[in-house]
Amino acid sequence: MSGEQFLSTSERTFVVNALREGIRVDGRGAYEFRGLSIELGGGGFGSAEVLLGKTRVLANVSAEVVRPTANSAEGFVLFNTSFSPMASPAFEAGRLTEEEVLVSRMLEKAVRRSRAIDTEGLCIVAGEKVWSIRVDIHVLDHEGNILDCACIAAISALLHFRRPDVTVEGDQVTIHPMDERNPIPLSIHHIPICISFGFFDKGERVVVDPTHLEEQVQDGDFIVVVNTHRELCTMSKAGGAGLDVARIVQCTEVAAAKAAEVTELIRGALTKSNEIKK
C-alpha cells in the first residue's frame, strides 16, 4: 500500500484555477525558481547538498582506479541514484518507483551522455589503469522537481571534486595521497543544467520548477537540458497532454535563461568554497 496521500479534487481545482489567474500557490511567478542553496564540501571533495525550495538532494563523488574495458584509454563515469525512503512515504526500500527510474535515466542522459566530463582525461595507463568516477545521488526530501535539484547537485559535486594526483614512470604508477600532492579537479567540458516544466489546463499554463503539489496536478511535463552557451544537450517530452509547438520553443528560451542563472549560482558556490579553503 502506498504511503502517498491522495490529492482531493478541491486541491486540484484550486491549483488550476489559481494558475488561470496567473497565480501559483506558493506565490512565485510562472518562470521563477524556488530558492536554491548549494552547500559544497560537507563530506570532503566532491560532496554537494542542494536545497531547491524544500527538496533536498545530496551528491557524492568518489574515484577509484580500475582496469578499463579491452584496450580502451577512457575512464568511466557511473551514476547511482537512490530515492531514500526518508524523502517521502511513497518511497519504499528495494522497490523502484517509476519516478526513480525516469530521474536516474534523465540524469545519465544529461550529465554522462552529453559528454560533460572528459573521459579520456581519466586515463592513467592506456589499457591497464583508468579512473572510474562514481556519483552517488541521494534524494533526502521530496518537495517536487527532484530532477533539477539532483542535476545541480551532481554537476556541482563533479565540479568540486578533486582526484589524487598520479605519476607514471614506465611501469610504475604512483598514486599520491591527498595530503602529499595537491589533488586535481576533473576536466569538465560544459555544465549541463536540467530545467523541468510542468503544464496544466491542456498545455495553456506552463510553470518552471513545479512543487510536489503542482507535480501531482500537472497534465504533463517537459524537460530541457541546456548549458550556459545556449547549447541544447537533452530534451524530453514523454507522454502527458499535448503541447503546442510554439510553447516548446518558448520553454526552451526560458530554459536557456534559467540555465545561465543557475550556472552563475553554481560558480558562486564553488568560488565561496574555494575561498573558505584558503
Binding site: G3, K54, R56, M86, A87, S88, P89, L140, D141
Partner: peptide
C-alpha cells in the same frame, strides 16, 4: 527537523562524521 516530509528528522554529527535520520510513524503497518 532538516527534512520537511518526514514526521521527525535530525542530523547528529561528531566532528565531520554526520548521520541524518528520519522517522515516519506511528503509521499504517503492512
Amino acid at each position: 527537523s532538516p527534512l520537511s516530509r518526514a514526521d521527525g528528522s535530525a542530523r547528529f554529527a561528531y566532528g565531520k562524521s554526520a548521520v541524518l535520520a528520519a522517522v515516519y510513524g506511528p503509521k499504517e503497518v503492512r
